[in-house]
Design a binder for these strands. Structure first.
Lengths: 106, 106
DNA sequence: TTTATATATGATTAAATTTTCATATATCAA
DNA sequence: TTGATATATGAAAATTTAATCATATATAAA
């Protein structure tokens, strides 16, 4: 696996960062708005946004003292794919023994 | 974000587990074969396989004392999507300041 | 030109995840 | 039925990652 794949997962596959991406699916938002809708602490949010921005999963533009973040087109498609997959496998995921201390051996 | 999405990422978004999925893209393989091609320690590999299996990202069948693992169709598509995305964003990912101690502010 | 608001940064602490270790089980072959 | 091979399991150690804290910067408004 390439080094880039590692970095991709570091950025994308994180509960909070993914929530940010989903939240940006509908409309672009500034940090304050994201803070409210996601209920993530401000500095934490900024760290995550910086990460997503560095990897170009999202874009930013200034407007007064606000910074408006938007998701980019390709990332959007990927988020859709993942969402679709999760829906399809929801049942299995929810009874996954590893994470839920259950036991479903073969 | 749904609980299932959390579980999805726990299973899918892991360097080694993703390497396993990629390795299974071409052909089904038993644990021993995976061990050689990926150079992951046996017990570690088994843990990861169990995780992927629980979430139905892969399938297994017995053959003698071997267990042959194969990737399922939908997971395959998802792996393809991710690979495509990584290729497209490789440049940005590789210069991501968060993980590479570099600095690329706006 | 001082104060308030919006956001970012670096360093530390806290928490979660991965890796390893020691061992168990299951199947085949002798 | 014993020994060897293939794979799985649970618990502990090691490492990463996320969350928090204290503070900085940048812009706007007074």
């Amino acid at each position: 696996m390439s080094d880039a794949t590692d970095l991709f997962f570091d950025a994308f596959a994180n509960k909070n960062r993914f929530r940010i991406l989903v939240e940006l699916m509908n409309k672009e938002q500034c940090v304050g708005e994201l803070q409210k809708s996601l209920n993530i602490e401000q500095t934490h949010l900024s760290h995550d946004l910086r990460c997503l921005l560095n990897c170009k999963f999202i874009n930013v533009r200034k407007e007064g003292r606000k910074r408006i973040y938007s998701i980019n087109k390709e990332t959007k498609e990927l988020v859709d794919e993942v969402t679709k997959h999760v829906k399809r496998y929801e049942t299995y995921l929810n009874k996954c023994g590893i994470l839920k201390e259950e036991d479903g051996r073969i």
